Simulated assay, not measured.
Amino acid sequence: MDGRKLAGAIAGELVAGVRITAMLMRNERKSSEPSEIANIKRAGLAKLGREVPSQEQLPDTREQVVIQGGHLLLSAAAGAAYALTTDRDAALLPSGIAFGLAFYGAMHWIVGPTLGLKSPEWRPDRTTLVMHTVNHIGFGLVTAAGAALAGHGSK
């Protein structure tokens, strides 16, 4: 395993994760509604028998730290998965796009609905599907770029 590639992939995914965190929090404030990720976290807590805020209540600072911290940990794990599943010489565009789509498929189409944390991805409107797809392709590309940049010269 190339440690520089691993570190670069994790860093790239964290950069992408921070970007989406900022976007989610901005959209919460604009819409006055909790983000999808907040609702997913709350659904998980409810399944564990924990008390959760009402669906209309925006996350407070403590809840945001848990929500976004968990999202960034998932981002770091995704970056590590990219580094572990791609060749050192993987082309940036195809590997980044493929990884972003695979991660999107796994999380939004399989894991989330299977665990009952979110509605199946085929139910939302076209705009939501496009947004999720584009965001995850972006994640994949930033992850691949981070891995490529950090791994450059480590051959």
Rank of each mutant, 00 (worst) to 15 (best):
P113Q: 13
L6R: 08
W122G: 03
N135F: 11
H132L: 06
S31Q: 14
G112Y: 07
M1L: 11
G151V: 02
A38P: 01
L149D: 08
P59I: 04
H136G: 02
T133V: 00
M23T: 07
G69P: 06
M1V: 07
P94C: 14
A145H: 01
A144W: 04
A102S: 11
E13T: 08
A7E: 04
G140F: 00
P34C: 10
S31Y: 05
L149H: 02
A22Y: 11
D125T: 03
A102K: 05
R19N: 09
S32Q: 15
L74P: 01
R123N: 08
I137M: 11
I20M: 14
H136S: 13
I40C: 00
P120L: 01
K5V: 03
P113V: 12
A43V: 08
P94F: 11
G8V: 03
V134G: 02
L24A: 09
I10H: 05
G96C: 10
G49E: 10
R4H: 12
K5A: 12
L117W: 11
P120Q: 01
P120D: 10
F103N: 06
Y104M: 15
T114I: 08
A147Q: 00
A46S: 13
M25W: 05
L72W: 10
F103E: 00
T127M: 13
Y82W: 12
S154H: 14
S119D: 15
L93S: 05
L6W: 09
N27H: 12
M107S: 06
S31F: 07
A77C: 10
D125P: 02
A43Q: 14
A80H: 05
S95I: 12
V130I: 15
R29H: 10
A98P: 02
V18L: 14
A98K: 01
T128M: 14
K47N: 07
H136V: 03
M23N: 07
R126A: 15
V18T: 09
E56K: 12
L92N: 02
G100C: 12
S54I: 00
T128C: 03
G49F: 09
G153D: 01
A38L: 08
G112I: 07
A7V: 04
I40P: 05
V18S: 02
G151M: 03
Q55L: 07
H136E: 07
A83E: 04
D125W: 00
A76N: 02
P113T: 06
L73T: 15
I40E: 02
P120T: 09
A16D: 04
E63K: 09
R26A: 15
G17E: 00
A91P: 01
R50L: 14
P94G: 09
V66Q: 15
G49Y: 12
G116C: 08
G96L: 06
F139A: 04
L117M: 13
A90D: 08
G140N: 03
G112A: 14
A76G: 13
L14G: 02
E28A: 10
R62T: 14
N39T: 11
H152D: 14
